[in-house]
């Protein structure tokens, strides 16, 4: 069996702490990962160098690995390009909290083991550069600046199962290995 290099790290740490990088509504996948870089299919670090490059170039110089993206409605709308979730994962984004996600981006993030949670009205409670502490399993989010607590929508157990395996590939590797 080939060594799993992309998904070796468990992403389901119960506790995630990070600084907020905040966006608005309808952040689309062309903005997250420009189409001109879609020919990059295997180099994770090169993908990570182009996050938000065309429209929000400041992201690449001001965001830090470990940061948490907070966004409004319909984050990741548009194309099905998996590089949009992958570039954020390999940049080192620890978690994305949004009021809603476009469905393909949401699935891509789960399948890549990039933690995502839906948090109603979060953009009204959190500002850029706040520090948040999240219990991923319970979905409780604490704003370290003012102590305010928010509750994320609970993920279905089936999806938590994929995430706790570290993404779809390790999940399927376990499953296919079991059949051999």
């Amino acid at each position: 069996m080939t060594k799993n290099t992309r998904f070796s790290r468990s992403v389901t740490r119960d506790r995630i702490v990070g600084k907020v990088y905040k966006f608005g509504n309808n952040i689309n996948t062309d903005v997250i990962y420009p189409g001109k870089y879609l020919s990059i299919t295997t180099d994770n670090q090169e993908m990570a160098r182009h996050c938000f490059e065309t429209v929000y170039p400041d992201f690449l110089t001001t965001a830090q690995p470990g940061d948490i993206i907070v966004a409004g409605k319909n984050f990741g709308c548009g194309s099905s390009r998996e590089q949009a979730a992958a570039c954020l994962k390999y940049f080192g984004i620890s978690l994305i909290l949004a009021e809603s996600f476009a469905r393909i981006f949401f699935r891509n993030a789960i399948n890549l083991g990039l933690p995502v949670l839906i948090v109603p009205n979060i953009t009204q409670h959190v500002v850029h550069n706040d520090t948040l502490e999240i219990n991923f399993k319970s979905g409780i989010i604490k704003n370290m600046k003012n102590g305010e607590e928010l509750q994320a929508v609970k993920l279905p157990p089936f999806i938590l199962g994929i995430i706790s395996a570290g993404g779809l590939i390790p999940y399927l590797k376990n499953r296919c290995a079991g059949h051999e």
Binding site: E82, R107, N108, N111, L112, I169
Partner: peptide, 14 residues
């Protein structure tokens, strides 16, 4: 419906 690439690899396998 549209899906992502990792998801499709699962479809190719299973």
């Amino acid at each position: 419906t549209g899906i992502g690439a990792t998801e499709m690899s699962g479809v190719w396998a299973t």
